[in-house]
Design a protein around this nucleic acid. Structure first.
Length: 260
DNA sequence: ATGGCCCAGTCCCTGGGA
């Protein structure tokens, strides 16, 4: 069994104790992190390595930043192809070796894109186009592939407690949702939607509006699977308990078990 | 009913998040 989690930690240094607890409790084989918010040299790797994980960080100062942790050794490539001028640390990819062959895993921090009238929105859409192009190439390898991370996309109304609040938001605009569907239509499976049609399943609750206390959440953290990975999907879980802790991230982990 | 937070940097305010 291969357990893979993704979690936007909203600063790895602020969230280290929670992450260490999570590694001990959920015992994932690999974890994709987003919004680490620190340079690679400042990444608290020793504490994580002490729990038996290898660590690859692709960070930048203050903002963004992604990482992959895994018990097995792996090779990594930082950066999403397609724009050599993009300096934002939002993508890292790893090739994990398992008993049953190679598994490719990406940790993605897709741009937020708000406000939708600013230059940030076209940057988001362009990033999604690059991700679509890259996913097309990876799918051609016909391997187990997991594209995991904070997509900053609410796929459907049932993925928000109050969808009417998000109509003009870059996370839910028709163009955003259409690009997400374009990604899925390459042949990727949204792991959670492969296991349930239920609404009310969220991975983010806003600090500002006391979203957690009101259960005003949205589902924006996703694990997308190639056919070879989807064939092996055993279960999906959202680890909501981490969101209720003191000094929590505004996101909670979501994880899958693959029969690999 | 309303307004309400949390991070990093160099920092006592600004910019970013979603």
């Amino acid at each position: 069994m291969l357990r893979i989690a993704t979690w936007n930690v909203n600063s790895i240094r602020q969230r280290l104790s929670h992450l260490l607890d999570y590694l001990k409790e959920a015992k994932p084989d690999a974890v994709c992190l987003q919004e680490t918010k620190c340079l690679d040299d400042a990444f608290p790797r020793l504490e994580i390595e002490d729990l038996g994980y290898n660590v690859a960080s692709h960070g930048q100062k203050g903002f963004n930043g992604v990482a992959i942790l895994a018990k097995r050794p792996f090779e990594t490539k930082p950066g999403l192809p397609g724009d050599p001028n993009d300096e934002q640390a939002r993508y890292i990819e790893a090739e994990l070796s398992t008993d049953k062959g190679a598994v490719r895993l990406a940790s993605i921090y897709l741009p937020n894109g708000n406000p939708a009238g600013s230059e940030k929105y076209p940057y988001k859409l362009a990033f999604m186009d690059r991700l679509i192009a890259h996913a097309r190439r990876l799918l051609a390898l016909e391997e187990p592939l997991i594209l995991a991370g904070d997509y900053n996309v609410i796929p459907e109304p049932r993925d928000a407690a109050k969808p009417e609040q998000w109509l003009d938001d870059a996370l839910f605009l028709p163009q955003t949702r259409a690009k997400f569907r374009e990604l899925l239509n390459l042949g990727l499976t949204d792991a959670l939607r492969a296991t349930t049609d239920s609404g009310g399943l969220y991975t983010f609750w806003d600090f500002k509006t006391f979203g957690w206390q009101r259960n005003n959440g949205i589902r924006i953290d996703h694990l997308l699977l190639s056919p070879q990975a989807a064939d092996r999907l055993a279960s999906v879980a959202i680890d909501k308990e981490m969101r209720g802790r003191d000094k929590a991230s505004d996101h909670t982990p979501i994880r899958i078990d693959l029969d690999l």
